[in-house]
């Protein structure tokens, strides 16, 4: 069997989803790490420096292309699978078994993914577009000029509706991950009966903790909360 046959098969398509999904999870980790700066002392400078590093490092910029491709593949393949799978039962059931036999979020990955996508578009317009194409104020640290992305955040998250929107995005992400991580493990066949519970629990912890950290950011900025208790060891 060759590669094109593999990825054309039903399992191959799932492998595409799992691979891209896991790749996007790595991005989430890095993003989350950068975000975490705002909870600690000297948030503005640390955050802006970190953002600057992410925006200028060549390796990161190259990876960013991969990231976009990963997103597109995950989204397109996801929708294609959803449509294909929906077409396999032309006459629907009158009564559904509801949540007795499966989790609602497992059945709603396309819906959750769509919510995340909508959130993502808004999010890109808020931050990524201005940092790439201009429109941000600038600050100076040690004689070097940086985009004041932190300032942009303060402006954006001052609006309550934006905070609510971001929270919806984070909840969607959490549920998406709650299913997605263990599902990817199952697709790769890592689900041994002894390890399955471990994978499930670690995946669930990740799916709750990471989106929680994301969600805390707009909340903290909106209400001006800060831990101000130390600092992350900066790589930047």
């Amino acid at each position: 069997m060759n590669w094109s046959q593999l990825f054309a098969s039903s399992i191959g398509k799932k492998i595409t989803m799992a691979l891209t999904g896991l790749f996007l999870i790595i991005f989430l980790l890095v993003h989350c790490y950068v975000n975490a700066n705002v909870f600690f002392s000297n948030p503005e400078e640390n955050f802006n420096r970190a953002a600057h590093f992410m925006g200028t490092n060549l390796l990161i910029r190259v990876t960013e292309i991969g990231l976009f491709l990963g997103f597109i593949l995950h989204i397109v393949q996801g929708y294609k699978l959803e449509l294909q799978n929906r077409s396999k039962r032309s006459v629907k059931y009158a009564v559904s078994s509801g949540n007795v036999t499966s989790k609602w979020y497992s059945r709603s990955m396309a819906l959750l993914g769509t919510l995340i996508l909508l959130f993502l578009i808004v999010h890109l317009i808020h931050f990524w577009v201005p940092s790439r194409f201009g429109g941000l104020t600038e600050v100076e640290y040690d004689g070097k000029t940086y985009h004041n992305l932190y300032g942009q955040m303060q402006d954006v998250f001052a609006q309550s509706w934006v905070v609510v929107l971001y929270l919806i995005g984070c909840f969607s992400l959490s549920w998406h991950l709650l299913h997605g991580i263990q599902s990817a493990a199952q697709t790769f066949g890592w689900a041994h009966k002894n390890y399955m519970p471990v994978i499930k629990n670690v995946g669930a912890a990740f799916a709750i903790i990471i989106p929680l950290i994301f969600a805390l950011m707009p909340i903290c900025l909106h209400f001006g909360l800060s831990l101000d208790a130390g600092s992350l060891t900066l790589l930047f």
Partner: peptide, 25 residues
């Protein structure tokens, strides 16, 4: 295709486990 909702396992009258699906994958 399988999207790992595991409704099959819950409804299987013979209790076949989805661990088998992982093995298949």
């Amino acid at each position: 295709s399988c999207t790992n909702t595991y409704a099959c396992e819950a409804e299987c009258p013979k209790g076949i486990s989805v661990v088998n699906i992982a093995r298949l994958n």
